[in-house]
Structures are given as structure tokens and as C-alpha cells.
């Protein structure tokens, strides 16, 4: 229901779009997909939050799905706005040992190591 509303809002704003097509297939995400994405992204979502994420994420995915309608045959993907090649640096050691200062922000350190719960390999 609100999904349709969202598409119309988008369509209104991009009304001048040449080939705007409202997708006829539902691309909305399932709870399982959202759960999988949350695991990949290492984000814990509380139960009440989860419902909201499923619905809003679905809206967003539906919204960006209108890109599918754009004709992009033979178009080179644009990864970056700067059309230049990478500048390189000389192989010089320019960093000193600032461990103590850098570790002031760390939640848990011991003997110079950052600590995390035991990882079993």
C-alpha cells in the first residue's frame, strides 16, 4: 500500500523522466534477505527496528529500481568523477611510533595489543 504511494511520490518528482517505468515485479525485500544483509553488515537490529528497516529498505530498493529502465548499452561505468591517474608517493618511512596516543581511543588494550573476545580458529 505505502509502497505504491512511494513510487508515485518519486514519479512526481522525476516526472520529466523519459522512460520512467513503475516496476511491475515486486522487488521488495523479504525478512530473510534483510536478516542476511544485517549479518553481512554486522548490524544488530532490535525487533521493533527490524520491521521498520524491512519496510523502509523495501521502499528504497523499489525507488532505485527505476534505474533498470535507463538505456545504458555501451556506456562505460563511471567509478569516479576525476579523470586522472593515481598519484604515487616515494617509498619513504614518514611515520613514527605513536602507539600510545593512537590507543587512547581504544576500548580495550593490553601490552600494546588491541583486545577482542577470544577468536577460535
Amino acid at each position: 500500500m505505502h509502497k505504491t504511494a512511494c513510487i508515485i511520490t518519486a514519479a512526481k518528482f522525476v516526472g520529466y523522466l523519459v522512460r520512467l517505468e513503475i516496476p511491475d515485479r515486486p522487488v521488495s525485500l523479504t525478512k530473510e534477505q534483510v536478516q542476511h544483509i544485517a549479518i553481512l553488515a554486522r548490524l544488530q537490529l532490535e525487533d521493533d527496528e527490524f520491521e521498520d528497516v524491512v519496510s523502509k529498505l523495501s521502499k528504497i530498493v523499489d525507488f532505485v529500481d527505476q534505474l533498470q529502465a535507463a538505456p545504458t548499452e555501451n556506456v562505460v561505468p563511471m567509478a569516479h568523477p576525476l579523470n586522472m591517474s593515481l598519484r604515487l608517493r616515494a617509498d619513504d618511512i614518514t611515520e613514527a611510533d605513536n602507539r600510545d596516543r593512537y590507543q587512547e581511543n581504544a576500548p580495550s588494550v593490553e601490552s600494546g595489543y588491541y583486545l577482542v573476545p577470544r577468536v577460535i580458529e
Binding site: L29, Q33, V34, I37, A38, I39, L40, A41, R42, L43, Q44, L45, E46, E49, D52, V53, K56, L57, I60, V61, V64, V116, P117, R118, V119
Partner: peptide
């Protein structure tokens, strides 16, 4: 454990909009 450390630190630390964008981007 480590997984819990990641998920909860990030889950508690980020707000709703940031989480949505991370999720969208991951997807």
C-alpha cells in the same frame, strides 16, 4: 563473542538512517 561485539557495537552506535544506508549499500 566477536560477532556479538561487532553487531551490537554497530547496532547501538549507529542511528536508524545510517543503518538503512549501510544496509542499502550492502545489498
Amino acid at each position: 563473542d566477536l560477532f556479538d561485539l561487532y553487531c551490537r557495537s554497530r547496532g547501538e552506535g549507529f542511528g536508524a538512517e545510517v543503518k538503512r544506508r549501510i544496509m542499502t549499500g550492502t545489498y
